[in-house]
Amino acid sequence: MKPAQFDYARPKTVEEACGILAADMDARVLAGGQTLVPMLAMRLSRPSVLVDITRIAGLQGIACSDDTVEIGAVTRQAAALASEVIRAEVPLLAKALRHVGHPPTRCRGTVGGSVAHGDPSAEIPLAVTVLGAEIVFVGEDGEEERFAPEDFFIGPMLTTAPMGGLLTRLVFPRRAAAPTGTGFREVASRRSDYAFASAGAQVVLNADGTCAEARLGIGSVGDTPVAVDISGLSGTRLTAQDIRGAVVEALSDLETVDDLHATASYRKRAAVRLAELALAEARDDALEQAG
């Protein structure tokens, strides 16, 4: 469990990093290392050079504009979890972050690293998918390229990231001014394990308490996190029955996978259950804001 030999570079700027990546097909970005380092140790990854991007100032930090919140790719998951801005403006992400690993891994793991890696069970990609956040890359040519989640995550640990590209930031929509509730639920063998199934939900209420907009995403059950069309809930009061009916219908052809720890049929039932729980949690959260 010693990595094969590699070189190490620690660029100061995005341009410098992109230059190294462009020059060498086998160069690999190193962010928090929480996924990559074990892969190096197992020799499942054998980069020629590791491009450590954690010292690039331009990739850090969380910034709020009129209708978006931008998160620099190397923002540590722990920092994002502690961020007031994220809690207030991207509450679903804040909820999702609590389930990502545990404190020691969150202290090193980055928000962008999780998205770039594209594990179908990862919580951050699920939040990105539910909220339709933009994934921003800088390519070999220094040009920015933006991806919608459904175009980006295409398989397990498989993305459409440009060759030699660097994920620089994620652009999340700010929550609406109207009561906006969120719910995040997952099930795993142990707390902090990758989930067998996970569900993220967000609902926005009309002034009369009916549902103006509902979003749902399911993770961990298949090749990628998936956004689920749950628009049928719009206009309802989000009763348990409303939710149940909409979820069962929306997930009726959800494809799930089998593995050692969980069967496909289990994942399917769990997804339905978690979706209901997440939507109910989101509704209660929104109702509380509505007072």
């Binding site: 063998s189 067998f196 720890h261 969980a262 069967t263 049929s265 289990y266 994942r267 039932r269 769990a270």
Partner: peptide
């Protein structure tokens, strides 16, 4: 006793 087995048994 895996969770998934318990759940599948009930189902």
């Amino acid at each position: 006793l895996r969770m998934s087995t318990i759940s599948d048994t009930i189902a």
